[in-house]
């Protein structure tokens, strides 16, 4: 390579976190699952969808960050993951430009 690169991240970890780290996240994920199911039965009205999805996104982020180790990944890998989400947002945003404004024309 042109310039010597930073060596990739070392995941070196004391062996206690081999189980402990993931275990904590696992407990967190299960707690969030329980919370999300509980929230489903609260009278949240129109906010419910957002709340449910919000909890799911927290769960997904935990998985991404810890289980999939994005927290320690190289910038390139983080960028790649972000690109997937950003392009997905293109589909949602621009696609919605049609579906959300169409009723304004022909109800």
């Amino acid at each position: 390579m042109a310039s010597p690169r930073k060596p990739p991240q070392l995941y070196e970890a004391p062996s206690s976190t081999v189980i402990l780290g993931p275990a904590l996240v696992w407990v967190g994920l299960l707690a969030l699952l329980a919370a999300n199911i509980g929230l489903t039965f609260l009278p949240l009205g129109r906010a419910k969808t957002a709340v449910n999805l919000g909890v799911a996104i927290v769960q997904a982020s935990l998985m991404f960050a810890v289980f999939m180790r994005l927290n320690r990944a190289s910038a390139l890998v983080k960028l790649t993951a972000a690109a997937g989400l950003v392009w997905l947002s293109f589909l949602f945003l621009i696609g919605s430009a049609d579906f959300l404004t169409r009723p304004m024309i022909s109800p």
């Binding site: 621009i94 430009a97 579906f99 169409r102 024309i105």
Partner: peptide, 10 residues
């Protein structure tokens, strides 16, 4: 196609 004209403009 019948897509929203607003979207078409974009």
């Amino acid at each position: 196609s019948g897509q929203s004209p607003y979207a078409s403009i974009v």
